[in-house]
Amino acid sequence: MAHEATAPTAGERRRRRVPVEERLAGLERRSIVPALVVVGIWFLWVVAVPHLDAAVDHDDPVVAGERFAISDDLAVTPPPGWDVIDGFRTTDIPAGGAGARAAFTNGTVTIIVTTDTYDGTASELLEQIDKVTSATGAVDGFTVTDGRSTVTTDSGLTGVAETFTGRGVEGTVAAFVSDGTGIEVSASGQPDQETAAARHIAHLIHSIGPWDTSDADQQEAS
């Protein structure tokens, strides 16, 4: 015996309709409370908490002499007075490890240091960085402005650097490779501001070097 597909009867269609006494402003009365509960959850997480976060000032300046870990064995020394956006002081490493990113700003210029495994030379790494930046639009209108220069840090690590421009920004990007770890330093800001901060940027790049993990251990012990 086969089923026969039948259209719903008029009575069935009426039963699907919400009875008039169960409506409020055209909506089914009983559906309003759960809908409002969910709107409340959405409001809390998508409106209230981000507004609260924006209302709390970010105030974490770099103190002279502080170093920030960029891997389990490399660190940088950012310019004193700059604000820490991201990254961990070598004296305060979280349980999950040193992390692979540090970022600092003076309000107009931002320096971001990123590390990760990389199997290649510093020049190849810089080419890869240029390729990804152009393809993903990370810097709008990204254009390399001059040839590459050699950079050697105070610890003797040699890498390459270049300058670039984008829409409303100019910057410097430097690449190093140390024992299979690639290091990218990217500094960018408004054209005149970036030039003014060039000394600080160079200072940070030259400070890339090993850090003593016992600093963190001692801090933990104390």
Binding site: W45, V46, V49, P50, L52, D53, V56, D57, H58, D59, D60, V84, D86, G87, F88, R89, D92, I93, P94
Partner: peptide, 18 residues
């Protein structure tokens, strides 16, 4: 968006490592 905002708030209030 909520995880990012709450994480940022924690970092501002209690420090990056915490």
């Amino acid at each position: 968006s909520a995880n990012g905002a709450l994480g940022s708030l924690y970092a501002k209030l209690f420090g990056a490592a915490w």
